[in-house]
Design a binder for these strands. Structure first.
Ligand SMILES: [Mn+2]
Ligand SMILES: [Mn+2]
Ligand SMILES: [Zn+2]
Ligand SMILES: [Zn+2]
Lengths: 153, 153
DNA sequence: TCAATAATTGGAATTATTCTAAATAAGGCC
DNA sequence: GGCCTTATTTAGAATAATTCCAATTATTGA
C-alpha cells in the first residue's frame, strides 16, 4: 500500500523507512503508514514545526490523517528517540528531528528557531542532591537578523 | 489603603515596595496594589509557581483580585525585569523572581524546578549571522531525588 | 480637584492539547 | 492467505491555559 509518486529517492527512502521501523520496533511500537508519513514530513523541512504544521504537511501526502493521530505519532517518535520536543516559549510545542548535539537560538519576535551545533564540552554543574540527569537544553533568546533589522527603523 | 497585618517586616516591606515602584515607573507602568500583592506572593515562596498558583496565593491577601489581573501583573513584572518567565515543559508557564544568574533543573515526573547558581563563564557559541542575543536559558531535565527513588521500586 | 489615560474586572473567546469509545489495521501463527 | 489479539487510528467532545473585550475604576500630573 506504499503510495508511489513520492519525490524522495527510492533507495534512500527505503533506508530511512527501515531505520524508522527498527526504532519503532525496539520501543514496542508498530510500523504504520501514518508514522512514516509524519516522520517524512518532519524530515522534509528542517524548521521546527508545531504539531499543527506537521498535520498540514502530512495531509498533503495522506489527506485523511487525523489531528489526534499526528499527536500520537509525534509522541511515539519522541518516545523512541527520533525527534526532540522543544518548548522555548508559550504556545504550541515545536518538534525537531535533528538529533545531533545542538542548541537553539530562538527569535522572540517571529518565533523562528535556529539549530547551532555545540562544542562537545561538558558543562559541569553541581546538581541538586540525588537529581538524576536525563538531558539538557540550551536556548538563546533574542532577535533574528531580519527582525532586528525591522525593529531598528 | 495599605492592608495591615502583613507578616512581613515593616521596614523591609517599605524598601521592597519602593524598589518595585521605581522599577515599574522606569518602564512606564503605574504602581498599583494588585502589582504589589502579586509581587509579594512571588517573593513569599521561591518555588516556580504557575499563574494560577500566583492567583490563589494573591487571593489570600486580596480576595477580589481577578485572574486576568494576575496575568497582567505578571506580564508587567516580567517586562520590567523583576521576574523571569520559564517554560520548561508543555503546560502552564512558570514564574521565577530570582533574578540572579542561575539555571533550572526540572523534574519531568513531578514538575519541580530547582534553581542552581551557575559559574560565571561565558559559553561562547557562534550565533546565526545577525542574531541579536537577549538572554539565554539552560535547563537540565531528569528526575528529582524523590521521584528517582519512587521509580526504582 | 479634575481630566486624561492606564489598569482592573468578569466573562466570553481562543488556542493547543488530551480524552473517549468505536472502527480499523498490524503482526504473529496456523 | 485467513484468523486472532491487540495496538492504532479516528472524529469529535472535553479540558487547560491564556488572551481578548468593553465597561468600570484607579492613578497621576496639571
Ligand atoms: Mn533543533
Ligand atoms: Mn528559577
Ligand atoms: Zn525573527
Ligand atoms: Zn520529581
Amino acid at each position: 500500500m506504499t503510495k508511489l509518486g513520492c519525490p524522495m529517492n527510492l533507495a534512500e527512502h527505503t533506508e530511512l523507512e527501515r531505520a524508522l521501523g527498527e526504532r519503532l520496533a525496539t520501543s514496542g511500537f508498530r510500523f504504520t503508514s501514518q508514522r512514516r508519513h509524519v516522520y517524512d514530513a518532519l524530515l522534509q523541512t528542517l524548521d521546527h514545526p508545531t504539531a499543527d504544521d506537521v498535520f498540514m504537511r502530512t495531509k498533503r501526502q495522506m489527506p485523511d490523517i487525523s489531528h489526534a493521530t499526528v499527536y500520537n505519532c509525534l509522541a511515539a517518535l519522541v518516545h523512541c528517540g527520533l525527534v526532540r520536543q522543544v518548548q522555548l516559549q508559550r504556545g504550541a510545542t515545536r518538534y525537531c528531528p535533528n538529533m545531533e548535539r545542538h542548541c537553539h537560538y530562538c527569535c522572540d519576535e517571529c518565533g523562528t528557531i535556529f539549530d547551532v551545533t555545540m562544542p562537545a564540552e561538558t558543562p559541569t554543574m553541581p546538581s541538586p542532591k540525588g537529581f538524576q540527569v536525563d538531558h539538557y537544553e540550551i536556548a538563546v533568546h533574542g532577535l533574528c537578523a531580519n527582525c532586528a533589522g525591522l525593529r531598528k527603523k
